[in-house]
Design a protein around this nucleic acid. Structure first.
Lengths: 240, 240
DNA sequence: AGAAACTGTGTCCGACGGACACTGTTTGTT
DNA sequence: AACAAACAGTGTCCGTCGGACACAGTTTCT
């Protein structure tokens, strides 16, 4: 859980980026890292990342926990594989789409991934090695912004900005949770607390009292970001 | 680590929001939740959130681990107290500052908190109860945007947007880490990988090859967000 | 026919969060 | 002044976790 980066970095890189396998001698492996990761994803989808243990994943595959270590150096690497498997690849950008449409579709797709696998938020905190599929998400943003007067670092920064927003929204909708869930109760408790301390938090209390469509946060933030990018692009086009 | 919200929510709320204490009979408590939280922060600052255990925190205070449970229901609640203690309160907004200046200062302050306590990123993932100081950060953003034609939900959404950006930046600078650190090696490894697979990630490879000042990501994203908000505010002012 | 390389299993360890029973201490009540 | 209730801190125990290690069984190359 901590963010301590260790010497397993190279192992992780080899697992995520290296060739699939190569041995010849001995019994044939009954498993693959991919199957193990898929089982881990299954557990995490059903019971959260905290419920993912070597025991449980192995049990789901009808193996002992120690056999998994033949395919995966440790739990951290298993989680990395799970992330790579769950985040998937971004869809190909539509041919006729301009940068704004491309980024909008991108953000919607990424939000969808987080919605399907909420534990991705837990699993992608802290310094870590990124896999090929995950890197493709970055590639799409940078490519979409190519040729609009932004520098390379600026295009990367824009990707960080977009990804941060998607993350924030995913976190928020997880806190909200489905109606009747324990998460929804959390939100209700927060509302009560704010109302009780309305004197110390007048602006929040007033904002929360106002009616208004929920679930607008995604579009609101995205539009602000894209407007801001558009303004910069126009400015650069003007002085070019 | 997992995002499972439990029935301890009420306990946590009482700890964070309730009165300090009230007992009369029996020996006087030698500790306080605050002192325990401070010890936890000390451990987390030095060795990361993963190193925070009841054992270690208790040892730092010269008590046994079970004595901590007299003050804190469990580890989750301890972490919540640590977050509340470490994030601190936002500074009072400058009197003459307009909304843009206020939000800029706010973002810089919050970034500073994350820089001082990188483990805050780990500790603030998933549904959880928010404390009084943390809520004050939200209050400042919403208050700064009062009276500019934005609806209540929109002001809240803007806060989520800003906080998401600060988080993203904090995460990024943690991945970069100080020179020579294992985190820095991670980044170097990523660079190597991208260069090796430049055919699949041409846009990223090109963007990374371009020279350019690092550490611009914070300002870049912030300016885009504020530009986007300014555009909305102007639009609303025009049609009012 | 070895021998080498590899797979999967069983056992063991230290660290973790936490339940529980217990001793000792302080305070309100009689 | 005596006692009982309430509380603080300790020590012990349990289940679960990630992981090290030795071992038996299996496949393939020499």
């Amino acid at each position: 859980m901590s963010g301590t980066a260790n010497e397993t970095a190279n192992d992780t890189v080899r697992l995520l980026w290296g060739p699939p396998a190569k041995p010849t001698r001995g019994p044939k492996p009954a498993l693959t890292p991919e199957r193990i990761a898929a089982a881990g994803v299954e557990v995490a989808d059903a019971e959260g990342l905290g419920a993912v243990s070597m025991q449980k994943v192995a049990g789901l595959l009808d193996f002992t926990k120690m056999s998994l270590y033949r395919y995966v150096p440790g739990k951290a690497e298993l989680v990395a594989l799970m992330v790579e498997s769950a985040v998937g690849e971004p869809g190909a950008p539509a041919d006729a789409a301009d940068w704004r449409e491309q980024l909008t579709a991108w953000a919607a797709q990424l939000t969808d991934s987080f919605a399907r696998h909420p534990w991705l938020l837990d699993a992608t905190v802290g310094p870590r090695v990124i896999g090929p599929k995950e890197l493709m998400w970055l590639e799409r943003v940078v490519a979409a912004l190519d040729g609009h007067g932004l520098t390379g670092p600026e295009r990367m920064d824009a990707a960080v900005l977009l990804a941060g927003h998607v993350r924030g929204i995913a976190e928020q909708s997880r806190t909200a949770g489905p109606a009747g869930s324990p998460e929804a109760e959390l939100l209700a408790v927060l509302g009560t607390v704010v109302r009780q301390h309305a004197d110390r938090y007048p602006a929040v209390a007033a904002a929360m009292a106002e009616p208004g469509g929920r679930d607008q946060a995604f579009d609101f933030g995205l539009e602000r970001i894209l407007d801001g990018l558009a303004a910069l692009i126009e400015r650069r086009a003007g002085q070019a």
